[in-house]
Simulated assay, not measured.
Amino acid sequence: MNKSIIYLVFALSFTLWNCKGNTQDDHTDHESNQESTSAKKEESQNKEVELNQIQFKAANIKLGALQKKNLSDIIRVNGQTELPAQSQAEVSSFLSGTVTQIMVNLGDKVKKGQVIALIDSPEFIQLQEEYQISKNTLEYLELEYKRQQTLRAENVNSEKVYQKTKSDLNIERAKFQSLSNRLKLVNLQPGASATSLRILAPISGNIATIPVKIGSNISQGQSLFTLVDNSQIHLDLMVYEKDLPNIQVGQKVSFNLTNINKSEITATIFSIGKSFEAGTKTVIVHANINEINENLIPGLYVNALIHIGESTVDALPNDAIVKADGREFVFVLEQEEAGLKADHFHFQRIEVKTGVSELGYTQVTLMEKLPGDAQIAIQGAYYIQSHLIKNEGGGGHAH
């Protein structure tokens, strides 16, 4: 009986001790969860950073606001800058000879009809000689024909002599006209004379190539210069078959080039090809560039966007967005507050969600509402991030 009482007391004691232990564990877990939640809440709080005026200027920080950008409803395509055939010219000579003067350099801008080279050509001298002889012969035959007409009317000469004179006159007229046309082709007006053959620019534009030099012996039809008129440059874009139903004449195209400070350039579709390019399932779409920059040259590779819709989104330059702890943020300049130094800049880090990113801009959704005139660091955000100091005690600004 005594043994039973002892066992019962021991069992009750163990049960009470175990219950107490569980209660303490539950309390400890609850406190741990509270601390974890508090830590997460503290971590999720917006952080602030202060820069003085020297730091602000040294970082070349630029401020701006959210912009409306058409970054959706687009088709991404590749292509290159091209010139139409009428904006390119191959300059050659109709006669052979020797180059004696080159009056232009590579890249020079020339006007249509400008003399760009001189050539000494025996053929040119001979052509002028033949022209002068034909001119004199023609004048003689015209007089002779009139004389034969008079004699024929008086039955003094025979019909055969009259017809022979008429035939000689017509042949010489044809020869004279041919020589006149040939002189015009070599840029010499009939009746004028010159010792050297002048090579003229057939179009206005820039000198692209000069494959000859002074003293070069050139043959008829040999290339002497290449001219390009970049004022008519346009885009040739390769559009895949699946995207063709969405392409229309008049749609806006935007693209940028690294050699033009990454600035956005726009174009407008004016023609859509009617056949596939050889070996591909793409059709060439042509677009006129709205404002021709002097740095645009034929053959530049471009990544372009064809805008097929009108919807717009809030966007910021890519440089405005920083990544930290697996999230994305922007820095907003705080509004003037009492106690803030005039020569200091206080930024608050605000979390954002990003979307489409094209042409240097990214769609953003702010995770909290900001004033309409809020100023965001659109350049230098990573510099601000490097100076970020976590708030301590949940208090004011980090210094």
Rank of each mutant, 00 (worst) to 15 (best):
L188C: 05
Q189R: 13
A192M: 15
S193N: 13
A194R: 14
T195S: 15
S196Q: 12
S196W: 05
I199G: 00
L200H: 06
L200G: 07
A201M: 11
I203V: 12
S204P: 06
S204L: 14
G205Y: 08
V212Y: 01
K213P: 00
I214C: 02
N217Y: 10
N217K: 14
I218K: 01
I218R: 05
Q220R: 14
G221P: 10
G221F: 12
G221M: 09
Q222L: 06
T226Q: 15
T226I: 10
T226F: 09
L227W: 06
V228K: 08
D229F: 07
N230H: 05
N230T: 15
Q232H: 11
L235S: 00
D236R: 10
L237P: 03
L237S: 03
Y240R: 02
E241M: 02
P245M: 03
N246Y: 12
V249K: 10
V249P: 00
G250R: 00
Q251W: 03
K252H: 05
N259I: 09
I260M: 02
I260N: 11
I260T: 06
N261S: 14
K262Y: 15
K262C: 02
S263T: 13
I265L: 15
F270D: 13
F270T: 11
I272E: 14
A278Y: 14
K281A: 12
I284G: 00
I284K: 07
H286R: 12
A287K: 06
N288T: 12
I289Q: 03
N290P: 02
I292N: 02
E294N: 08
N295V: 04
N295F: 09
N295C: 01
